[in-house]
């Protein structure tokens, strides 16, 4: 289990991380969200022991993270961190040995992972000759080849097509089943929505949203109503107090409302129309993120 307790990090006068605390249990996937410059990378670097926190502690299974523990951590950085002149095999052996593995064990593991990602033919290809997507797969394999107890994924799906995104998701779930604690960061909220049970949204280093995804969505009062049908009285719906907006999305309308209690009022306007769909849904993480981050900036 990873425990981040009240960490603070200053760069000169600038507070990059402000009293941040969270826990990631074994086999849990945790989302760390935030706009660019919110303090995500600094938090990751503190967890990895690359940076010393000005205050606070980071514990993995009750022990302070230092170089005796980093062999149990995997890290996929946001930008590609591969030595492009090396071959795939050389690169994986290089990172594997730095994680304290034997060359024989690395070779066994790399064969399994290359097969899993359907790139076993690229074993002796140079990294620079691979496509962006395949480079991303190698970067992922290099982070998980040691079956880490803690895995940090910073934008892991960058450059991947939908098929390979599914493959990588499968790999992440596999690691979750092994009991690996996973911290996940992405700007694509649908991935966070699909993966994470818990999350934190950081703004200027401070957690402005913190908790289980389901609870966060429930607590967020604004809802979306999706309506499909004929002769929808858009103008009348817009006039209802509590309706934020009405937008047309292909063959249906999306009505944003302030809270649950507005939904019956909207329904009252359309109940006599020829409607084929009326669905009240929770706000998406994307909407929650934009709203919450926006509030802070206002």
């Amino acid at each position: 289990m990873l425990q981040v307790k009240n960490i603070v990090k200053y760069y000169g006068e600038n507070k990059a991380v402000d009293n941040l605390s969270f826990e990631v249990k074994d086999g849990e996937i945790f989302g760390l969200l935030g706009e660019n410059g919110a303090g995500k990378t600094t938090t990751f670097r503190i967890i990895m022991g690359l940076l010393d926190a000005t205050d606070g502690t980071v514990l993995l299974n009750g022990r302070k993270i230092d170089y005796s523990l980093t062999d149990q951590i995997g890290f996929v950085t946001e930008e590609r961190s591969l030595l492009t002149k090396m071959t795939v095999k050389e690169q994986l052996i290089f990172y594997g040995i730095l994680k304290g593995m034997s060359e024989k064990k690395i070779e066994n593991e790399l064969k399994k992972w290359l097969k899993f990602f359907q790139i076993e033919d690229y074993e002796n290809r140079k990294i620079k000759e691979l496509s962006k997507g395949n480079q991303q797969k190698i970067q992922f394999i290099s982070a998980v080849i040691n079956h880490p107890k803690l895995l940090i994924l910073d934008e892991p799906f960058t450059g991947l097509d939908p098929i390979n995104v599914e493959l990588m998701k499968k790999a992440i779930y596999k690691l979750q089943e092994e009991g690996c604690s996973i911290i996940f960061s992405s700007h694509q909220m649908e991935h966070i929505d699909a993966f994470c049970e818990k999350l934190i949204i950081l703004v200027k280093g401070k957690a402005i949203v913190d908790g289980y995804v389901q609870d966060i969505k429930k607590e967020y009062k604004k809802k979306n109503i999706l309506i499909r049908g004929e002769d929808i009285p858009v103008t009348e719906i817009e006039k209802i107090k509590g309706v934020i907006s009405v937008t047309k999305q292909k063959d249906e309308y999306a009505v944003k409302v302030d809270e649950d209690s507005i939904a019956p009022k909207v329904f009252a306007k359309i109940k006599n129309k020829n409607i084929t769909k009326y669905d009240v849904t929770e706000a998406t993480l994307n909407e929650i993120f934009i709203a919450k981050v926006g509030e802070v900036h206002e």
Partner: peptide, 17 residues
């Protein structure tokens, strides 16, 4: 310089001091 420009430095330094 090569390790820094390819960003592999972050991975290396996270495993060795």
């Amino acid at each position: 310089c090569e390790e820094k420009t390819t960003r592999s430095m972050e991975i290396i330094i996270s495993n060795v001091s």
